[in-house]
Design a protein around this nucleic acid. Structure first.
Length: 422
DNA sequence: TCTGGGGTCCTAGGACCC
DNA sequence: TCTGGGGTCCTAGGACCC
């Protein structure tokens, strides 16, 4: 049996831990640049605020005091996530962290349904008490079913946060009431096809033949189809390292028009990618740079920059990656008449640092380079992020723009710690 | 005026091999 | 009516997830 633990309205819940006055109030958390809504409390969902809704469309609600708004505070959410995960790991011999707010627990051999339910309820209570974040736990024979169960656990308060699917009868009932579009693995495109064929619930879906599923969709859909019938076939890999790393941002206001500004941003993104590569002891073989103008501003000239470079030898060296990224920018004709709203750097074709294929006629002294990187990393670790950096990055420290409603970093910055007045 | 960011996996089609 | 057969590897694009 698997347990799927999902934090309810995670970012909002994190904010509420330090703002108990907002417990039963409508709350939303915004994306970078205060762009759009990415987390909603149940109360804001009930008000009809949609996931991904642009902030400007609901600003009036905030101004009327009807909804509390927060900019995203990833230092806080990341730290709260670590706390939740570390508590979750106490309740299973094996924990797979699936995302910032979700994890899969292996409950194999832990006991019968009653034991599991009691175990799960204790876990949910303990985490609520220990971290302050509400959790929903679904338990079933497959991960897809457990995910479905966790949604039921969230939906019905009587379950006290835990829903268990442990018999064919329960599975059948659960499938019959579950909209097909809410099934894990069914996205927008698949939903369209399903609707066309009159498949409305998860139950309708499993009534179809395997051949039909394979014909209309692909092997992933077949896996989902099997999982819904209790056949375990989705493996969540704990990848030792990421296969691609991307760093990108939207620019606020009119965006960026000057080549020099675009270069600064790209140099910064490339620096961060290189740092993340080294963090997981890996090197990248290829580098992609992209930038584009607003897709919402039809009347302005539009442009798409998309260039990539293959490295002779996989690298994690900041200077080398920045250099390649800037080369990508310079290959493209950047004109002042374009306002780039978003840009980013992606590094991929990633290999482990100790498995790099070297080049016989390599022109770079990699030993020397390595020493330099280590020295720079060690200075930056001691003295702060990017204290030593490539000059192209300019004076700007980070590309976070508007975050007017950001909360304090209560748990990760000593200056932001809560003060109690007695 | 204002519309996020970061990932993985699969597939089709082309280039190549014998 | 007819066009050989069987492979691998690579890549771009599209699907999905949070």
């Amino acid at each position: 049996m698997f347990g799927l633990a999902d934090c309810n309205n995670f970012f909002v819940s994190c904010e509420r831990v330090f703002r108990p006055d907002l417990r039963d109030k409508p709350v939303v958390v915004l994306s970078n640049n205060d762009g759009c809504v990415i987390s909603r409390s149940n109360e804001s969902k009930a008000m009809g605020i949609k996931m991904g809704e642009p902030f400007f469309k609901i600003r009036h609600l905030m101004e009327q005091g009807k909804v509390a708004v927060f900019s995203s505070n990833y230092s806080l959410y990341g730290d709260m996530s670590r706390r939740v995960m570390s508590m979750l790991s106490l309740y299973t011999p094996h924990l797979d962290i699936y995302s910032i707010d979700e994890a899969i627990l292996d409950f194999t051999g832990l006991g019968d349904a009653d034991v599991l339910r009691a175990h799960g309820k204790k876990m949910v209570r303990d985490i609520n008490k220990g971290v302050g974040v509400p959790i929903s736990l679904g338990i079933a024979a497959t991960k897809t079913l457990a995910k479905m169960a966790s949604k039921y656990a969230k939906q019905y308060p009587a379950y006290e946060g835990v829903c268990l699917i442990d018999s064919d009868e329960k599975r059948e009932k659960a499938l019959q009431q579950f909209p097909i579009g809410d099934v894990w693995g069914v996205g927008r495109q698949m939903l369209k096809t399903m609707t066309y064929y009159g498949v409305r619930t998860a139950w309708d879906f499993v009534q179809r033949s395997e051949n039909w599923v394979r014909r209309e969709f692909n092997v992933n859909a077949v896996r989902t189809w099997r999982e819904l019938q209790g056949i375990n076939c989705i493996k969540i890999d704990e990848l030792p390292y990421k296969k691609s790393i991307c760093m990108s941002r939207s620019f606020p206001g009119a965006g960026i028009s000057k080549l020099s500004e675009l270069e600064e941003a790209v140099a910064y993104f490339a620096t961060e990618c290189a740092r993340k590569l080294r963090e997981q002891q890996s090197c990248c073989g290829q580098i992609t740079v992209f930038a584009y103008t607003s897709r919402f501003r039809q009347e302005q000239p539009s442009d798409l920059l998309h260039q990539h470079i293959r490295m002779n030898v996989p690298t994690c060296d900041t200077a080398e990656i920045v250099h390649a990224a800037l080369e990508c920018v310079r290959r493209h004709v950047v004109q002042d008449l374009y306002s780039y709203k978003k840009a980013g750097v992606m590094v991929w074709d990633i290999v482990s640092s100790d498995a790099v294929q070297t080049l016989l006629f390599d022109e770079v002294d990699r030993g020397k380079q390595k020493k330099l990187i280590q020295a720079v990393d060690s200075i930056n670790r001691k003295n702060g992020h990017n204290v030593v950096k490539v000059a192209t990055m300019g004076e700007r420290r980070e590309y976070v723009a508007d975050h007017k409603y950001v909360s304090r970093r209560y748990t990760t910055n000593i200056n932001d710690i809560l003060e109690l007045k007695v």
